[in-house]
Design a protein around this nucleic acid. Structure first.
Lengths: 136, 136
DNA sequence: ATGTTTGTATTGTATATACAACTAAAATGA
DNA sequence: TCATTTTAGTTGTATATACAATACAAACAT
C-alpha cells in the first residue's frame, strides 16, 4: 500500500474537527447556540448584511446546508432575510448582534484553551496546511 | 477583541474537514460506502476484530454515533458483531474485507490528489498541530 | 420580446453527530 | 455472596451535512 491507513487525511481532519467542536461545546454549555450557528453569526458580524451565497462560499458550506441552518437561526430571531426570493440578503438582527457580543467572551475562552497547547509555530504550520488545501 | 473572527479554529477546522470530505466523496462516486464508513472499515482492517469501544476511542467518535454508524454497516453486511450485548466485538465480514480492498485504490487516488498540493513540510506542520490538539 | 441558459434557493432523502436518559453487564467492596 | 459503582451500548431528540431534484429569477441571445 502506498499509504498507511492512519495517514488518512480525511479521517484525521474529521476527527480533529470533532475534537475541537467538543471543546467549543463544552464552553458553550447551555447557551442556546451551537458552534456552527456561532460561526455563521460571527461571519455575519464581520461582513454585515450580505448575500446568502457569500456566506456559503466563505464557510465552504453547501447551499442547502446553509439554507437549513438559516431556517433555525431565523426562527430563533437571530438572523433575518431581506430582498428577493432568489437572491436574498441575510444579516444579524438586533437580538443576533447582542447574542454574538455576549458570546464573544465564551468563544475567547474556548480559543484560549486551544491556544494554550499551541505554539506560534504550530499555528503557522496549520495555516500553511489550510492554505494549501484551499487550492484544491 | 483578543482574536479575529477568521482565526476561529473551530470554524477553520470544520471547514477544512468539509472540503476534504468533498474530495473523498468525489473519488468515491457511486461506490456504496461513505467516507465515514470507509474510515471505520479501514480502522477495522488494521486492528482486526476488536471491542467496539476501542474503535470509538481510536476515531474520537461518541459511542452513540459509532453505534448508529455500525447499524448501517451491519445492515449492509460489511461488519458483524459478536460476543455479549454489553461488550461486543466488531469486525469486518468477508464481504467487508473485499469491499475495503477494492476501495483502497480509490482511497489512494483521493490521498494522491490532496498530497499533490502538500509538501513534506506542510504534512509535518499538520501533524504537529494534530498531536498538540490531541493533548486536550 | 421571447426563449434559453445560468446562478441561486429550497425540498426530498439519507448519513453523521452529540447529549441525555436508559439499560445491561462487569468490577469492586463489604 | 450480594449490594454498589463503574463501564459500555442503545434510544430519544435535535442539529449538521450533502446530493439530487425542483423552483425561480436574472442575464443573455437571437
Amino acid at each position: 500500500m502506498k499509504y498507511n491507513s492512519e495517514e488518512c487525511l480525511g479521517s484525521r481532519v474529521r476527527g480533529l474537527s470533532r475534537k475541537i467542536d467538543n471543546i467549543y461545546r463544552k464552553h458553550l454549555g447551555d447557551y442556546p447556540v451551537t458552534e456552527n450557528q456561532l460561526s455563521i453569526m460571527m461571519a455575519l458580524h464581520k461582513t454585515g448584511t450580505v448575500e446568502q451565497n457569500r456566506i456559503a462560499k466563505l464557510l465552504n458550506l453547501e447551499k442547502s446546508t446553509l439554507s437549513r441552518n438559516l431556517v433555525r437561526l431565523i426562527k430563533s430571531g437571530l438572523i433575518d432575510k431581506s430582498g428577493v426570493t432568489n437572491r436574498p440578503k441575510i444579516g444579524l438582527t438586533k437580538q443576533g448582534q447582542k447574542r454574538v457580543e455576549s458570546l464573544i467572551p465564551i468563544w475567547e475562552a474556548a480559543m484560549d484553551e486551544i491556544h494554550a497547547v499551541l505554539s506560534w509555530h504550530d499555528l503557522k504550520g496549520f495555516q500553511q496546511f489550510e492554505s494549501k488545501i484551499s487550492l484544491l
